[in-house]
Structures are given as structure tokens and as C-alpha cells.
Design a protein around this nucleic acid. Sequence first.
DNA 1: AACCAGGACGTGA
DNA 2: TCACGTCATGGT
Length: 248
Amino acid sequence: MTIPLSVQLIFELLFEHYGPRGWWPILTRADTPGFDSKGYHPGVYDIPRNRADSWEIMAGSILTQNTAWTNVEKALLRLYEARALSPEGYLSFGPESQIDLIRPAGYFNQKSVRIERLARYFLDHPQGPESREELLCQKGVGPETADSILLYAFGRPSFVVDLYTIRLICRTGLLSAEKLPKTFSKRYEYVQYFVTSDIDSLPGLNLIQTYQEDHALVVHNAKIHCAAKPKCGGCPLERYCPKLPAPV
DNA sequence: AACCAGGACGTGA
DNA sequence: TCACGTCATGGT
């Protein structure tokens, strides 16, 4: 008789197994006190510390759209070396240079424009977005990018749903892939509400830290075990997981 | 050598 | 509303 999985139990098991993940990584703080060589900062939650941190996260959230983080690291380092990892610095370069700097992250024609517009937006809103809706009005900022920016760049309690989250929720049987809303935006809101309503029901939590940690754990576990082709051996959820089908 | 990666948007039915 | 197609590099 095994205990049925719940949202809360999944995150308990993941945290127990992996410990704090230290998201969102700040690559330009790598190898400084509290940060590892990739900029992760396990157990350190006073991020962002300044607007450079916020911008690095905003730029990274565009660069990582449908892209492996290792490629984003290359692009971020190129921007940094060129003194282009700030809104003003980035805007001082022309389109061709912008494209060349972020080339390793792929989709460079789209992303270079999206980052440029986001840079102007950030300069116009130094204290951060007025609202989630305002962020979503920016071209190239969809639900996941908006929530990533809110949660990690500005420390606001907005839970990030991604491909991995939906995959995990479906494979573990918490939601069935067929019953999920068809359209992307409805599916996003649906899964987000499903997860956060359970998290929020636990009293006494710091929602910002909890949302930050939980999303990071989902991504970390997906990279190691819950990938497109699952590698279930050693997964902390294996003994509870029915391994049901997930979309895509 | 396909497949996949920390999505978002445009198009035509 | 829905079902596609498009965008692009780099690791496995």
C-alpha cells in the first residue's frame, strides 16, 4: 500500500532528495561567496540584490525560451564580456551585434528584438512591472516568461509552469493528459491553479521562496529523470509514479 | 543522425 | 477556438 502522490508530497520528496537548488542562477556572480561555478545559490534567497541581477534574469528568461540552459550560459557570457549585460549596454549595440552576441542561444532574430524591447521596458519601469498583465503585453513575453520574471527577477509570488511541470503532473497521474485544456494559455492557467491552490493551503509558508524552490526542483528532476524519454531509475518519485502518458 | 531543450507567436481554417 | 508551422543553436 503506497501513499498516493499529491502536489505537496511531490515537492517534499524532491526537496528531501535534492535539497535547495539555488534558483535563478546569476552567472555573473559565479564563484563568489554563496554561489557555485554556474551561479546557483542554494539556500540563499536574497536575490535579486540589485537591478543588474534583475536584468540578468530577465534577459535569461528570454534567452532560455525553448532552449537548453547550457546555450543560454554561452550567450550570457558573451553579453557580459562585451559589456552588453545591462539594459543600457545592450541597447548600445546595433541589431547585427546583438544577434551575434546571443547567437549560441538560438532563435537570435526573435530574441534579440525581444530583449531590446524588454530593455526599454525595464528602463521605463525601474521598480519592476506594474502587473503580470503589463508584462504579458510585451512582445515575446508569454505566461512562463512573465512568471519567471516576476518570481525570480522581482521576488513576487507567481508560480512558473513549464513543459516539465505539465509533464510531471501528468506522468504522476495528478492530472490526466486528455482532460487538460487544449489551448496553451488555458492549460497554463489550469495547471498553475492546480499546483498553487495545493501549495497555498499549507499554512506558514514563504510563498516566494517556496515557489522559487518548487519550480527549480521540477526542472532539476526533469533534467535528470523526467526527460522526454524518462529515465526512472533512481528518481525520488519512482515508487509512487504510475508513469502515465504526458502531452508531447 | 534524429531528437530534444527552463516558449511564443502567426496563420488559416 | 483549434491545429499547425516557424524560429536555430548545440548536446546526446
